[in-house]
């Protein structure tokens, strides 16, 4: 399955994953940890342990600095 991963304000990746791969697996393929980002599908976050069910996702970094 091919997935377009738009890392907000960074790079858009085209990632090929196995069937049944999770969103955590998808993040791992682009060297991100679920701890540091939120994965959005149609504007809503998806659990990292769920199988990927979208061909386009957005990845938003959690940042805290002030």
């Amino acid at each position: 399955m091919d997935v377009t991963v738009d890392v907000v304000s960074e790079t858009t990746h085209e990632v090929s994953i196995d069937d049944g791969a999770t969103y955590a697996d998808l993040l791992s393929a682009i060297d991100y940890s679920p701890q540091e980002v939120s994965v959005l599908v149609d504007g809503s976050p998806v659990p990292e342990d769920q199988p990927v069910a979208a061909d386009t996702v957005q990845v938003v970094r959690l940042i805290k600095g002030g």
Partner: peptide
């Protein structure tokens, strides 16, 4: 609002709109 190195974010949270947890359900 938040900043990190060369990147920043802003969003506005009003009582009848989505909240911060709708975007980031839990802190790392």
């Amino acid at each position: 609002g938040a900043v990190y190195k060369f990147e920043g974010q802003v969003t506005t949270l009003v009582p009848d709109g989505p909240c911060y947890r709708c975007l980031f359900p839990e802190a790392p």
